[in-house]
């Protein structure tokens, strides 16, 4: 794998975490309710857990940008993504698919679905793949264009897939 590909994954994940954390901070009260709805932490600890999740996301986003902490942050990202996937899977299994996902961007309008589990696992796999050793090569200016454009395209596609997943239940409702 080329170093540019790994860089695209790292920067995209960093963007994802920072955006997710900012959304959760701006709607902290709502996020606390979403977290409580997952029924995974004791009700009394919800506020503290919500703050911890936000701190973790923000920390991962920043550590991904620092070369020295990058591989640790990649492992952490994969772990957190798998944890989110597990939280969603547990609630799907419990039949609580009507609760909100709490995912960034479409907060308040995304019910749980198997697609969210698949999406998180895919992202976790990408994070792990970016940890593989890559042969070093000098970066040229064209690489900067590639990285910037690819991160932008990844962000757009992520928003698209989020929106498609959010549309799913509405479509199912229309089909009756």
């Amino acid at each position: 794998m080329d170093t540019v590909i790994a860089l695209v994954v790292v920067l995209s994940l960093a963007l994802l975490w920072v955006v997710a954390a900012v959304h959760k901070i701006r709607g902290f009260e709502v996020f606390a309710v979403v977290l409580a709805d997952y029924r995974l932490v004791p009700a009394r600890a919800t506020g503290a857990c919500a703050a911890a999740v936000i701190a973790l996301e923000l920390g991962l986003g920043i550590c991904l940008l620092i070369p020295a902490t990058r591989s640790l942050a990649l492992a952490g990202s994969a772990l957190l993504l798998v944890a989110y996937a597990a939280a969603i899977a547990v609630n799907l299994h419990r039949g609580r698919r009507f609760i909100d996902c709490g995912c960034a961007g479409v907060a308040g309008h995304q019910a749980l679905s198997g697609w969210l589990v698949a999406r998180n696992l895919l992202l976790a796999a990408l994070a792990l793949a970016a940890m593989l050793p890559v042969p070093a090569r000098p970066l040229i200016w064209l690489d900067a264009i590639t990285v910037a454009a690819a991160v932008g395209a990844a962000a757009l596609l992520y928003a698209v897939s989020n929106r498609l997943i959010a549309n799913g239940p509405d479509l199912a409702r229309l089909r009756g």
């Binding site: 264009i145 590639t146 454009a149 690819a150 395209a153 757009l156 596609l157 928003a159 698209v160 929106r163």
Partner: peptide, 13 residues
């Protein structure tokens, strides 16, 4: 091609 990819991503969104 990158420009086209980005524009198409925007259009799809």
């Amino acid at each position: 091609l990158w420009i086209l990819v980005l524009v198409m991503g925007g259009v799809i969104l």
